[in-house]
Computed example of a mutant assay.
Amino acid sequence: MDTTVFDRIRAAEGTILDRPTFHADSDREEEKLDGGVVWKLERSQFFNELDDAA
């Protein structure tokens, strides 16, 4: 398995968003797609969001 892409993802900088900001950003990006497909890449994170379908 080629792990190069995963190493690059782990090394990438990112911004931590609270839930309302994440949803607002996600909604804006989906509107730009005009019915296109959304691919979501989640990097080494811990999620405990049982009440959030996102």
Rank of each mutant, 00 (worst) to 15 (best):
D51A: 10
A12G: 10
E49F: 03
D27K: 07
T21M: 06
E49N: 06
M1W: 11
A54D: 13
S44W: 07
E49Q: 12
D51V: 06
F22N: 01
K32D: 04
L17N: 06
L33R: 08
F46S: 07
D7N: 05
S26L: 15
A11L: 12
G36W: 02
D7E: 10
S26E: 01
D51I: 00
A12P: 01
D51C: 05
L33C: 03
D2I: 13
L50K: 05
F47H: 09
S44A: 15
R28K: 11
E13T: 07
V5N: 06
D7I: 01
T4H: 14
Q45P: 01
R28V: 07
R43T: 09
A24C: 01
R28N: 01
V5A: 14
M1S: 13
D51M: 04
Q45R: 03
F22I: 00
M1L: 08
I9T: 03
E42T: 05
D25I: 08
I16L: 03
V37P: 01
R28C: 03
M1G: 13
D27S: 06
T21E: 14
G35A: 04
P20I: 08
W39E: 04
D18Q: 02
V37Y: 04
R8N: 06
E13D: 06
D2C: 14
I9R: 04
I9A: 15
K40M: 07
V5D: 01
D27P: 00
G35Q: 03
V37R: 05
D52M: 02
N48M: 09
H23R: 13
L17G: 04
L17C: 08
E13A: 05
K40S: 12
M1N: 11
A12W: 07
A24E: 10
V5R: 07
D51H: 08
R10N: 06
L33S: 14
W39T: 05
V5Q: 03
L50I: 05
D25V: 14
V37C: 02
R10Y: 03
D34A: 09
G35I: 00
T3F: 14
R8Y: 09
F46V: 13
E30V: 14
T15Q: 05
F46I: 13
I9N: 01
F6W: 04
K32C: 03
A24H: 13
A11Q: 15
G36F: 06
A54F: 12
F47S: 02
R19A: 10
R10D: 08
F22Y: 13
H23L: 14
G36C: 00
K32V: 10
A53D: 11
R43K: 06
D18M: 01
G35K: 02
S44L: 11
D7M: 02
T3Q: 11
H23E: 09
I9Y: 09
D25S: 12
D27A: 14
D34P: 00
Q45E: 10
T15F: 02
K32F: 10
D27T: 13
E29F: 15
E29K: 09
G14Y: 06
I16G: 00
Q45I: 08
V37N: 00
D2T: 14
